[in-house]
């Protein structure tokens, strides 16, 4: 049993777990056009999905290693080369499948939450 003081930390952890599974889907959904990390972060934040840098950049690397993203370096400003990511054909397929799965889960959860406790 957590104390009143410990509850905020517990809640933070639970929210983190809830969001974690959806981050990959959120990222894939925004990379139809090439984006670099910081612009993607801002784009996601503007739509209510703020992802900390320590989570976003490693996630981009992981998705790329899994073949769901492709990346390339572009040099506009020599002091600041940027790595642009975009969804790969395999990523597009995964995005479709994950979107479908998300809608199934979302509908089920909505039904459970609005139905109240029996």
């Amino acid at each position: 049993m957590v104390t009143k003081e410990e509850y905020p930390t517990l809640l933070e952890g639970l929210i983190g777990e809830l969001r974690r599974g959806a981050l990959g889907l959120a990222v894939l959904s925004q990379l139809g056009q090439p984006e670099y990390g910081y612009s993607l972060k801002q784009q996601l934040a503007a739509q209510g999905m703020d992802i900390p840098e320590g989570t976003l950049y490693p996630l981009l690397r992981r998705l790329e290693a899994q073949g769901l993203l492709e990346s390339e370096w572009r040099v506009v400003d020599e002091a600041r080369p940027r790595r642009y990511y975009r969804i790969s054909p395999q990523g597009r397929q995964a995005l479709g499948d994950l979107t479908h799965e998300w809608q199934v889960i979302s509908a089920a959860l909505n039904s459970l939450l609005t139905g109240g406790t029996k």
Partner: peptide, 20 residues
């Protein structure tokens, strides 16, 4: 193996954030 690449991207991200 990944150090240089990650460092370069992280540095650019921090410089972008500072500029913003």
């Amino acid at each position: 193996k990944t150090r240089g690449d990650v460092q370069l991207e992280l540095r650019t991200a921090l410089l972008d954030a500072a500029e913003t």
